[in-house]
Design a binder for these strands. Structure first.
Length: 426
DNA sequence: TCTGGGGTCCTAGGACCC
DNA sequence: TCTGGGGTCCTAGGACCC
């Protein structure tokens, strides 16, 4: 059997690149995209990285630097990024149908059938096509396992093996070289805690981890660590997920734009999150999913002094449902149970679990007519909102404003809102 | 005093990812 | 003044059953 060849295509500084597609004047200057609430940096252009701004760094810590270097700062525009992501994925599907869409900016491609051809040249062709069709720059790493493909991608990004944005580690010599160059904490699946443990044992590089006794890796890092050792040896343990699996749970959680001190804005926020969570459920799978269980949590800021409080309450939903009004009612009741006066709440959330396809939900004869009416109403609401924009139609319970998040510099919805589409004059 | 053993299911919490 | 959000997988430990 021919060895496997897996390519990882990763978009460079994805959110920044999305903003640049519609703003060519942003090329060559420092650009950053902020998390929800304009809290911290979640994407940085290479120029911003060079200025020393770290991933996840709070904006307020680098205010001066941002002003001095005229850093272009954007609030996150997930509707735009989601749409651009789909375009990139569609473009990649033109090269192989065997594709796993791993995250908003990454896909694994099975190129096993292309062995014999020059994989690097093929990858370069993929890169230039994606750039031409979508405007998004990418890097591509190729190897015989997912973990090695990740490593190859890292090498491509850092130009560890020549320039050109492509790194092919299917040949042993190149692979050895890169394994010795990459510190163990850069390996996919090794986080801070695991890196600390490994370093104590003198395991410093990806090559060290590769050479570890798999049983020892398992003792130290559970089966995850053992698998990693094999993956680094080129033995693929992580299959490509060609068909997206249904999600097992879904959540809508937000920090507030300003602290919430009274029940009314908390009630509105929780109702609004429940409503959004219900929409997400209805959009999943062929006919939507229903939740068996709903949890609400709220807490004060972990970063501020003053009285602190954190709590959560869970409600079983019988029968399972994705009806906005049912979820709003359940979430509001749960929130009421854990609500306490006298605190400054910084965040709350609604978490849904036990997700089942709606068609598998046992119909309850007594309520069947009611529920059918409900699902027709939900479908009508979703249709209007899809056409006219999110929240055109929503429950009155979600109307408040005080708790909403800060978004001071969001770019237009260039690709999804007709009034925001760029106009070309020729 | 002594008071089994083994299976399953569920949940909470840790670690990691993007 | 100002510190993201939404997922996954794994394990340990408790409840429960025979």
């Amino acid at each position: 059997m021919a060895p496997r060849a897996i390519a990882l295509v990763d978009c460079n500084n994805f959110y920044v690149s999305c903003e640049r597609v519609f703003r060519p004047d942003l090329e060559g200057v420092p650009v950053g995209v902020l998390s929800n609430n304009d809290g911290c940096f979640v994407a940085r252009s290479s120029e911003l990285k060079a200025l020393g701004v770290k991933m996840g760094q709070p904006l307020f810590e680098v205010k001066d630097l941002v002003r001095r270097h005229r850093v272009r700062v954007f609030s996150s525009n997930y509707v735009l990024y989601g749409d651009m992501s789909q375009r990139v994925t569609e473009c990649l599907r033109g090269f192989t149908p065997a594709l796993e869409n791993y995250s908003i900016d990454e896909s694994f491609l099975d190129l096993s059938g292309f062995h014999g051809r020059d994989l690097s040249a093929y990858a370069s062709e993929i890169r230039s096509t994606v750039k031409m069709w979508t405007g998004i720059p990418t890097c591509i790493g190729i190897a015989s396992s997912k973990t090695l493909a990740k490593l190859a991608n890292h090498a491509a990004k850092k130009s560890l093996m020549g320039e050109g944005g492509v790194c092919d580690l299917t040949h042993e010599g190149d692979r050895e070289q890169v394994l010795h160059m990459v510190p163990v904490e850069e390996v996919w699946g090794i986080g801070r805690r695991s890196a600390e443990k490994l370093n104590m044992l003198g395991v410093k590089t990806a090559a060290d981890l590769r050479s570890m006794d798999p049983r020892q890796a398992r003792k130290l890092l559970t089966v995850v660590g053992e698998r990693l050792v094999y993956e680094l040896r080129g033995v693929a343990c992580l299959p490509l997920d060609l068909a997206p699996q249904p999600v097992k749970g879904t959540a809508v959680t937000r920090s507030f734009g300003e602290p919430v001190k009274t029940w009314e804005p908390m009630r509105e926020a929780v109702a609004s999150y429940a409503s959004r969570a219900a929409e997400k459920l209805r959009g999943q799978g062929a006919h939507g999913l229903a939740a068996e269980s709903l949890q609400v949590f709220m807490h004060t800021s972990p970063f501020r002094s003053g009285p602190s409080y954190a709590n959560a309450a869970t409600v079983e939903l019988q029968p399972p449902t994705n009806d906005s009004f049912a979820l709003i009612a359940a979430a509001t009741a749960a929130a009421k149970r854990i609500w306490r006066e006298g605190f400054q709440f910084s965040k709350a959330g609604v978490v849904l679990s036990g997700l089942v396809p709606v068609e598998r939900v046992q119909p309850d004869l007594l309520q069947a007519a009611d529920r059918q009416r409900g699902s027709r109403l939900m479908a009508a609401m979703d249709a209007v909102n899809a056409r006219m924009g999110r929240d055109t139609l929503r429950s009155a319970a979600t109307m408040g404003r005080a708790w909403r998040m800060r978004q001071e510099s969001r770019s237009p919805s260039y690709t999804t809102r007709l009034t925001d589409v760029p106009v070309v004059r020729a």
